Amino acid sequence: MPAASTATPTAPRTFWSEAALAAAVDAVFAEALAEELAAAFRDDAPADTTPADDAPAIVLPDTDTLIRQAGIATGPCPPDPRLLSRSGQITRTAGRLAARAAWVLLKYSTLFAAGVLVASVRVLWHLLTPSKAPQLEAVPPERLRALKAADFLEATSETIKARGWIQGEYSSPDGVCILGAERELVWSDAASRKTSSDANVYLRSVIGRRSIPRWNDNLHRTEEQVHRALLAAAERARAAAQ
């Protein structure tokens, strides 16, 4: 049996190279394709395009079947679970209002209890502390007969230094407040009520408040602040020639 030939097939002699052979094949296919397209676009082409009886028929499913197969949910949109219902919104609003009311009640109840505690401590302090004997006025009355507003304010500061300074009441064995010292000066005929009224105009301008007793009774007030305010008001009155 002759041995199989292992030589590489070569292009026919008609073509000088494989590239020329490929170009010839492409030309043949292009010519055949052009003829088929020309026949397809001719007006006299057969109009019967019905597929053969033995060709398989392609039947597309309807829209409902496609939607069901795709798993698409139809119908009304379900409510968003993140949004509260009407009753839930009312409940949340009522809860917020109740919490705010409870906070306000707790706040003012605490303030009231603190005020009662401070007042109770002051009363117990006055009851348990031994009373001091009333002292003489710091300035003799004959020197203060015709006091002006500036002198009256300085005399009020001196009276508080001599008697002691208190809060919550005008006068006690432990001392006097600002208005208590002024009343003692007026009642001792050391000054007139008009002088006291004129002096308090300058005092209110210094402390920036209309109520002198409320400013005097502030929990953070100190006796040093009281004396500074009285002397500053005296300087203003003296600058106004009163």
Rank of each mutant, 00 (worst) to 15 (best):
128 L>G: 12
191 A>W: 12
209 R>S: 11
100 R>G: 08
137 E>Y: 02
102 A>L: 11
135 Q>T: 13
203 L>D: 01
152 F>R: 01
191 A>F: 06
117 L>S: 12
169 E>N: 10
205 S>H: 05
202 Y>E: 05
115 G>V: 12
185 L>F: 08
108 Y>F: 15
164 G>E: 01
133 A>W: 03
102 A>K: 04
189 D>F: 09
190 A>G: 15
168 G>E: 00
210 R>Q: 01
97 L>D: 00
108 Y>N: 11
144 L>R: 06
124 L>N: 08
125 W>S: 14
159 T>C: 15
141 P>W: 06
212 I>Q: 04
136 L>S: 09
195 T>L: 02
198 D>R: 15
148 K>A: 07
164 G>A: 03
177 C>I: 13
153 L>G: 05
99 A>W: 10
172 S>A: 03
97 L>N: 00
133 A>I: 15
118 V>M: 10
199 A>G: 13
139 V>W: 07
140 P>M: 01
128 L>M: 15
214 R>M: 13
183 R>C: 12
207 I>Q: 00
187 W>Q: 11
155 A>M: 02
117 L>Y: 12
126 H>W: 14
216 N>M: 11
123 V>Q: 09
106 L>C: 10
163 R>S: 09
170 Y>K: 11
156 T>D: 00
168 G>Y: 06
142 E>F: 07
129 T>D: 03
139 V>N: 02
189 D>S: 15
116 V>N: 11
102 A>T: 05
205 S>P: 07
150 A>L: 04
111 L>R: 00
101 A>D: 14
133 A>N: 11
154 E>M: 10
190 A>Q: 10
147 L>G: 08
208 G>A: 03
203 L>W: 05
158 E>R: 07
154 E>C: 09
210 R>T: 03
167 Q>H: 01
113 A>K: 06
145 R>F: 06
109 S>W: 04
150 A>K: 00
111 L>H: 02
166 I>D: 00
124 L>M: 09
207 I>W: 03
152 F>P: 09
145 R>K: 11
120 S>M: 15
197 S>E: 07
206 V>S: 02
178 I>P: 13
172 S>K: 03
193 R>P: 06
110 T>M: 07
160 I>Y: 05
206 V>A: 04
197 S>K: 10
195 T>E: 00
109 S>K: 03
100 R>E: 06
172 S>L: 01
213 P>W: 11
